[in-house]
Write a protein that binds this DNA or RNA. Structure first.
Length: 644
DNA sequence: CATCTGGTACCAACTAACCT
DNA sequence: AGGTTAGTTGGTACCAGATG
């Protein structure tokens, strides 16, 4: 089917070019494998587009040819007879020969191009009518569809068709450009008129029966075959195919009926009122939720990243609350105290984390206190300051989450002051150390403070004190704050700096992990170096505690501290010597040293170290050079004296 | 002998179907 | 889309015979 408004290309199935050279007009009609020469008395000005005959072939009248043959049979010469009847004498010769061969029988004396005609005139008219109608309905058929239609028409009318039609399931007749480009305007509009013309063109016999008299000559035998085209019932395309129709409309959106009706019946009215109430209740819940979210956001903006809300670190990997894929549901019945994932299927499927605070009621609804995802740390979920409580149907609970690990709760406010005692502090540090060791793959000999700095993790005792400080600041109890911090903190902004200073002081006072101290002198720097997330090897390198002989030797784990080349097997030495060639070492050394010096020169504290070293080296080297020079001169003088 | 006429063969053109 | 095939027609070359 073509788009509406396009013109079908193959509508003109009959092309009737006029010839005007004789009284009895002959027209050639070509359609569906048909080449018809039709004779009638009246000129019908039906022109085909772009069609220009090259010869007058086949345009002679049967009467003329028959008369000419008669003349020849009576003794006139071929050329004379041909000239007399205005036919080609070569053609005349063939018909004379044919007449002599089939003497006594009636033979055809006109071209027979319709030997393989498929459709009768009525069938063609029906076909054209259908095509024109389709075009008028703005569903004009394209060439391929027209060919399919012709095939279907032949099938439904049980017509004999070429095998190629059967193979391709379509007619194979639209190969002529002129034929295709002929338009509907080239045909008589009135189908009855056209049929009348067609019938008048045909050799008619009897009343309405179309007789095509044909003599077929096969292997010298003469066979007279009279094809009688009895006007049987034509199965037209609209009968087996129907006219094209627009697709049925898609069902419109689920708009509820009766929205604009005026209900007079009480039950209907009541049901509408009830529905409106439900709608309003839903709306209200939504608005409340939005307001709660807004409130929470405002609070987050005004507070530091550590507020006094309890923080839950989910052990599940739920980084994003908005999930397109529904998580796998757990079948366990949720109970009070469980953390659950609640599904909200609005325009977009959204999941919330909540804690069940009340067992389900008779409607099967749980009361849930929702948690919020931390803006600063997406791995954490918090209870908002104003509890976000709502009842949720059991079906909306997607899964029961495992109990979260409570890292630091608000209870720390009570016992945090005890962290001043070294014993309590070391217990906490020991706990943290185990975790950090497993995370980083560091050696057992690594001090905890080195690990904390290397991995940029606050020491747990300071972390706890920090949270407790936030808690008591929130409560406005400054005595507790002073008790928790060394220098005393009055605002939340001070808290972080103050505790960082404490960490820095501890770090400087510590006698262990001096190698790491050289690399990260200022602990305040380390949290800013977010891109530095070392693997195990670099942790070994930074801490100096690794599979290096120098390190192992100190722990009595190796017999020697020397590397295979004789030097001390320090991390620097081993790292550069181990796998690299000499050239690569030089390049790497240059790169590393250049980088290091670049930063040292810009460091207000450390440039003096380099200055001192460089000065000392320069002086020493100058002295050595002068000594060498003196020696060389002395030896030269000796040689000269010996020669003299 | 040149020219005309008749008959025939051959080729090009035409057409639609068929084939690739 | 373009080539091939089969059937047909138109034109012409060629040959043979007739004729002036």
């Amino acid at each position: 089917m073509t788009k509406s408004g396009t013109k079908p290309l193959a509508l003109a199935m009959l092309t009737l070019p006029a010839s005007s050279h004789c009284e009895a007009e002959w027209y050639v009609c070509s359609a569906f494998g048909l080449k018809l020469f039709l004779c009638f008395q009246k000129t019908v000005a039906v022109m085909v587009r772009h069609r220009k005959r090259k010869t007058n072939m086949g345009l002679f009248s049967e009467n003329d040819m028959r008369a000419a043959v008669d003349l020849v049979s009576k003794g006139m010469s071929l050329r004379q007879a041909a000239a007399a009847k205005n036919v080609n004498y070569g053609t005349l010769f063939r018909y004379v020969k044919k007449a002599k061969t089939n003497e006594g029988s009636e033979i055809r004396m006109c071209p027979k191009y319709n030997s393989r005609r498929i459709f009768t005139n009525e069938q063609e008219v029906a076909l054209v009518s259908y095509l024109v109608q389709c075009a008028k309905m703005c569903y004009g058929l394209d060439t391929v569809e027209t060919r399919r239609l012709a095939f279907e028409m032949a099938q439904h009318n049980s017509l004999e068709i070429p095998p190629s039609w059967l193979e391709k399931k379509m007619a194979d007749v639209f190969n002529d450009d002129d034929y295709l480009s002929s338009a509907v305007t080239d045909r008589p509009e009135d189908q009855n008129e056209m049929l009348a013309i067609d019938n008048s063109l045909s050799c008619t016999s009897g009343e309405g029966n179309i007789i095509i008299s044909e003599t077929v000559v096969l292997n010298g035998e003469t066979e007279n075959k009279q094809i009688s085209q009895i006007p049987t019932q034509v199965i037209s395309p609209e009968m087996f195919r129907g006219y094209p129709k627009a697709e049925s409309r898609k069902p419109c959106n689920k708009r509820r009926k009766g929205r604009s009706c005026i209900p007079t019946d009480t039950p209907v009215k009541e049901s509408l009122v009830q529905r409106a109430q439900q709608r309003n209740a839903k709306k209200k819940t939504k608005v409340e939720k939005k307001a709660s979210k807004k409130l929470y956001k405002e609070e987050l903006d005004t507070t530091d990243d550590e507020d006094n809300s309890p923080v839950l670190t989910s052990s599940e990997d739920i980084n994003c609350l908005e999930e397109d894929d529904e998580p796998i549901a757990e079948t366990r019945e949720p109970k009070v105290g469980d953390y659950v994932l609640v599904k909200f299927s609005g325009k977009k499927l959204v999941f919330y984390v909540g804690k069940i605070i009340k067992q389900k009621d008779e409607d099967g609804d749980f009361e849930i206190s929702y948690l919020r995802k931390s803006v600063k740390d997406p791995r954490k979920f918090m209870f908002p300051v104003e509890p976000d409580i709502a009842s949720v149907a059991e079906t909306d609970i997607t899964m029961v989450l495992p109990q979260p690990l409570i890292a630091v709760g608000y209870e720390v406010g009570v016992w945090a002051p005890q962290l001043r005692w070294e014993r309590v502090k070391s217990k906490l540090q020991g706990l943290q150390r185990e975790i950090l060791m497993k995370l980083s793959g560091a050696y057992e000999t690594v001090p905890t403070n080195a690990l904390c700095v290397t991995l940029s993790v606050w020491p747990l005792d300071i972390e706890v004190r920090k949270r407790a400080t936030v808690y008591w600041l929130g409560k406005g109890n400054l005595d507790k704050v002073i008790e928790l911090t060394t220098n005393g903190v009055s605002t939340r902004a001070d808290k972080r700096d103050n505790l960082l200073l404490e960490w820095q002081a501890d770090w400087e006072d510590s006698t262990t992990s001096r190698r790491t101290f050289q690399l990260f002198t200022n602990v305040q720097e380390r949290p800013r170096m977010k891109n530095l997330q070392p693997f195990q090897g670099l942790v070994h390198y930074i801490t100096g505690h690794g599979p290096y002989r120098a390190s192992l030797f100190r722990m009595n784990l190796s017999e020697t501290s020397l590397f295979c080349c004789g030097g001390e097997a320090t991390p620097e030495h081993v790292t550069l010597e181990y796998i690299f060639m000499e050239r690569e070492i030089l390049e790497l050394l240059m790169l590393i040293q250049a980088n290091a010096i670049y930063y040292i020169l810009r460091d207000v504290d450390r440039w003096s170290y380099l200055d001192e070293i460089a000065d000392r080296v320069s002086k020493a080297e100058w002295g050595r050079f002068m000594d060498d020079l003196k020696e060389r001169r002395q030896s030269q003088n000796q040689v000269l004296r010996q020669n003299i």
